[in-house]
Write a protein that binds this DNA or RNA. Structure first.
Lengths: 294, 294
DNA sequence: ACCTTAATTGCATAAAGTGAAATACTGAGT
DNA sequence: ACTCAGTATTTCACTTTATGCAATTAAGGT
């Protein structure tokens, strides 16, 4: 007996209709059937009389319904109590975030955090990925949202939130780059590459070039992922960038993902801070919450 | 949150020692760690402070402990209530059981049943597998413990309890049979086969002979699995029998299992009765209980 | 008879739980 | 300072379980 089974049982006990419950609780009919069967087996008794054409609670079912109602109520109360403990937390969190990271995952985390700790303040700094760990080390910020670095300093803790796929992109418009890309086989050495000065996307692009033994003819260098997408869109070359940067770019319709079957290592996006800061209640709450799935 | 996690949490909350709890609750340390981590993630809060060298409940942990205590108490009460409902059942169950089936699984089922329905009476008949379904059909017995037959009558219901592997056995003592078995390749046509007159073991042995195109030289015929094992032990030949029959035989040390890599179809041992008899409360209780895992 | 609705089951696949062993960390005892 | 022992956690390989799709069964309505 777990929370989910209990909820399904309770809904079914009211609806007395497998199809309706399975639809409204977003599970397939077969799953619902099996959940109920498991419950019945666990309790060693029939909970529903599936007579011809109708579903009815048995008297044991009524007893279980009573138990489950009580239990779920207490469960909700427990969750409220636990949230209240952190709802009173006050203070300030200094948060650093790469522009890349801020695209896809920061809003969701901040929403959850504001809900749970409404009295806390957040000071957000954005900047380049390479700065994240320096700023933590220097004490300029408490916590950072960034990609997992090549080497994590020993006193820092990191917690993965998501994997971001990395793609090679090219312009959509007709241009010299596309002329070169339509050749077969493609001579990668002639194709200009848009690179950033440093950071995890740069290391992935370097690894690709090394693995495939490519020396690109012209290497345009820009600063930051966003500018790279724009340069590619204008026809300056191809580039290696993480997926969310593409999707959130204003020029996303003017670039396309090239299907070279090369496995770029995905970004490990996560939160990072000094280990000893876990002792601060507000930061601990943030840390916990970043780990939670929903 | 399910029953098992709750029990583990509660034990750990008292012992405050992962190693001790994992040992006493019969799970590996890694499992316990994970269960607690899952709970903490589900509740979005730290339950234990694992400071250097010691484990302590957090104040959230204390609140959860309080919840879990209450919940498990109610859970036990629920189980008691549900059992009481059937504890008052009286009446008689006429049970048929093949000797094979009675070996391994009947005692466990009867123990559970006596515990749950102490006022009920059981009349047990043992006999050959082939009789089981006739006796049910004739109304001589209510319910039978037997192997799944080739054809189950339409108005009967069957519920699997276990799969019993089937093996080919040979004598241990030096004898003519063992002389023949030590030849390579083995000439199966010369090796005498001990067969029963009928029943599911017979059909498996027949299938094996047919599949491998064997016509055994001498076919000793006996009645019942137990006698077959004895005949094999005495050196009369080889035989095809289900595993529990071997393990429970008084001469089990005088026979050995031959590793011919032929996949005998295992017995599907289960309970069987007329579908409409499920309406009788006592039989329904027996049926439910036979299905339960523990 | 045939069609419709509702629950269940078979099957293939995806997800999770699990334990043995390796790891990381700490404090105590030379 | 170094090893040793105790403790929690992580890794890895494996098994078990859960899930949804599609097929099946069963009863009622037309």
């Amino acid at each position: 007996m777990d929370i989910r089974s209990a909820q399904l049982f309770l809904h079914l006990a009211s609806s007395l209709n497998f199809a309706k419950t399975s639809e409204q609780m977003f599970v397939s009919p077969s799953t619902l059937t099996r959940v109920i069967q498991r419950l019945e087996e666990e309790l060693g008794t029939l909970l529903f009389n599936r007579d011809k054409r109708s579903v009815l609670l048995t008297k044991e079912g009524v007893r279980v319904q009573q138990f489950v109602r009580l239990w779920l109520d207490e469960w909700h109360q427990l969750q409220l109590d636990l949230q209240l403990a952190s709802a009173e937390l006050t203070g300030e969190i200094r948060l650093f975030c790469t522009v890349t990271a801020s695209y896809s995952h920061l809003p969701a985390i901040l929403d959850k955090f504001r809900l749970q700790c409404p009295k806390a303040e957040i000071k957000l700094t954005t900047g380049d990925a390479a700065m994240a760990f320096e700023k933590i080390k220097a004490g300029d910020v408490d916590i950072a949202l960034a990609a997992y670095p090549a080497h994590l300093p020993a006193n820092m803790i990191f917690q993965r939130i998501a994997q971001l796929p990395v793609w090679l992109i090219a312009p959509v418009i007709p241009c010299k780059v596309n002329d070169l890309l339509s050749a077969a086989p493609i001579n990668w050495n002639d194709i200009p590459l848009v690179q950033s000065d440093h950071g995890p996307a740069r290391s992935r692009s370097d690894k690709w070039l090394a693995d495939c033994n490519i020396r690109p003819e012209v290497a345009v260098k820009v600063d930051g992922h966003e500018a790279m997408v724009s340069m590619v869109a204008l026809g300056s070359g191809v580039a290696v960038v993480p997926e969310p940067v593409i999707n959130h770019s204003p020029v996303r319709d003017r670039v396309r993902i090239l299907d070279i079957s090369y496995p770029f290592q995905p970004f490990e996006l996560g939160v990072c801070m000094l280990g000893k800061k876990l002792e601060q209640p507000l930061l601990q709450a943030f840390w916990q919450l970043a780990a939670a799935k929903k």
